[in-house]
Simulated scan of single mutants.
Amino acid sequence: MQDLDSLVAVGDSFTEGMDDPTPNGTYAGWADRLAAMISAHRRDFRYANLAIRGKMLQEIVDEQIPLAVALKPKLVTFCGGGNDIMVPGSDPDAVAEVYEIAVADLRAAGAEVLIFTGFDTKHTPLLRSLRGKIAIYNSHLWSVADRYHCRVVDLWSMTVLHDRRAWSEDRLHLSPEGHRRVALRAAEVLGLTPEDKWNAAWPPLAGEAWMTQRRQDLKWAREHVVPWIGRQLRGGSMGDGLAPKRPELTPVHADHR
């Protein structure tokens, strides 16, 4: 995309950048890292990030999509629906219908759209039961991408993210290295040629005893999964009261190049 002079990122915690902390107390994440890569090639490039942790898809559509349209960027990155899919009893077909309406609005406004599929949860305890729903949702996203001529970052096929080092302690959000890998993949999809490879092999990792892994799984479920489900069922969110970290299109500094 030779004429890529502006990018607006919309979404939830994945796009906000949890858990990729910066020295100033905010999060960087794949979107900030991608923006820095693009800026290195185009100095007039501007970037906004409207994503807020915990947002459900309808909230993203109602609160962020109109702002993105108003900013009139060349490209919008759009990842959403994961929080909806994780709610017990949710319908991926219905979630995809909401997603498509938002893509149609963005395309009608003249923006290119970069779509992100859901992750493969095969290697995540408890969450692996969601694989079927995520696969159905992903199929819809590929169809939406085809209908509206969108590029796709296929997170499902990124087997490099199956390594636990790609994830933070809560296993719900990427680690800094996980975010870096996604940024590299997104840059590749956009036609850039990063020096580093997103699918480079991880260094060898010493194995752990089966019992130790199971204890860690139980601790993780107790401290992270159960509280998350409780918040969703109560209608609460980690992002309640938070504002976007980067609400306007502004030049990108070299922090994450």
Results as ranks from 00 to 15, higher is better:
M86K: 02
W210L: 05
R147M: 07
P125W: 03
P247T: 06
G241H: 12
G241I: 09
R107W: 11
E177Y: 06
D240L: 13
L184N: 03
Y137L: 14
A36R: 07
P176L: 04
A186Q: 04
S90C: 01
A108N: 10
A40Q: 10
C150V: 14
Q232E: 05
M158T: 03
A94G: 05
G89S: 04
E248W: 07
Y137F: 15
M37T: 10
H179A: 09
F45Y: 11
R43K: 06
H140P: 13
D105I: 12
D3Y: 12
L192W: 07
G81A: 01
S139W: 11
V76F: 02
T117L: 06
R181T: 02
Q64Y: 13
W202V: 09
D93E: 07
A200G: 04
D146Q: 15
L4H: 04
E223R: 15
A200P: 06
M37P: 00
Y99D: 05
L71Y: 10
T117Y: 00
N199L: 08
A206Y: 08
W142M: 12
I85M: 08
R181Q: 02
L218Y: 00
I229F: 03
R215D: 01
A111M: 08
I65A: 00
Y47W: 15
Q64W: 09
P125H: 01
R164G: 00
R53S: 13
P125V: 03
H140Q: 09
A187N: 06
P204M: 05
D91P: 01
H41N: 08
A48T: 08
L67S: 04
A243I: 12
T193N: 07
Y148E: 01
R222Q: 10
I52F: 07
Q2K: 15
V182D: 00
A68N: 06
R180I: 06
A94N: 05
D170T: 11
G132S: 12
G11R: 06
D5E: 15
A111E: 02
C79P: 01
V8S: 07
N49D: 13
E223Q: 15
P92G: 05
R215Y: 11
A200T: 13
D93M: 04
V76Q: 04
E100L: 10
I65G: 09
D154F: 07
L161S: 01
L161C: 05
K133R: 15
Y148G: 02
R222V: 03
D19T: 12
G132V: 09
L127P: 00
A254S: 14
Q64G: 06
K219A: 07
W30P: 00
A183I: 04
A254Y: 07
H162N: 15
P21Y: 04
Q64L: 09
M56F: 13
P227I: 07
D84T: 14
R231K: 07
G118C: 10
A35W: 08
G236N: 09
W142Q: 13
M56P: 02
M238S: 07
V76L: 04
A36Q: 03
M37E: 08
H179M: 06
A209Q: 09
D146W: 11
G80L: 14
E16I: 06
L155K: 00
K72Q: 14
D217Q: 13
I229S: 03
T159Y: 08
L126A: 14
A183R: 13
A109M: 08
E16S: 06
R185D: 01
I136F: 09
